[in-house]
Amino acid sequence: MSEGNFTLDGEDIPFQEGQTIMQAAMAAGKYIPHLCYHPEFKPHGSCKLCTVRVNGRATASCTQRAASGAVVESNTHAINDERRALLQMLFVEGNHFCPSCEKSGNCQLQATAYELGMMSPHYDHFFPNRPVDASHPEYLLDFNRCILCSLCIRASRDVDGKNVFALSGRGIKTRLIVNAKSGRLADTNFSEADKAAHVCPVGVILKKRKGFAQPIGGRTFDLNPISATPHPTIKEG
């Protein structure tokens, strides 16, 4: 397998043929902000938070294959400004109330916002009306916090072989749905053993009756910033 090098913010990063810029950067211990990317799944390229400049052109680092000699810029003032704007749009499109959210401290959206120094939502809130689905005896779906990363869809389809989740609608009306006639999680074969039960980077798919069992100070991102632990194993309760 052939190898090569590219530079990321001026540092040499080695890669193997077939690796994306994101994969090579992570293997080298370099953090590129992202939300829809997960090393165990095929890249989706939808959140655009991992956008970098390769030889001056903007591209998603989770889908762009590394090329020898490429000059990649990531941690620049201009790129981080754009990432903050994307984060702000994600916050205002949903209902993200960190103060009373049980995923607070374990949430990758919140941790990324801290990492990038997002100080306010900036844009007007949409305040969408998204009722929660509490029909399943063990799991709660709080759609208010969905960022449409599709990780649960990929996990359920590609790992669990179940297709419990899907995206429906187009454009700004895109939303996460449950593949059941009733639209309720209770009417699917979703279970705690599913990979999809454990990949949500925000607070949509939640184990019931476990919220706030972890004390402040012991939560994942209380201990390390997301740049140090981009894909931690989050303990539930």
Partner: peptide
């Protein structure tokens, strides 16, 4: 419409 375990944290606001 909110889950009960969220209440002690939310209402203190």
């Amino acid at each position: 419409g909110r889950p009960y375990w969220e209440v002690p944290v939310m209402v203190q606001r």
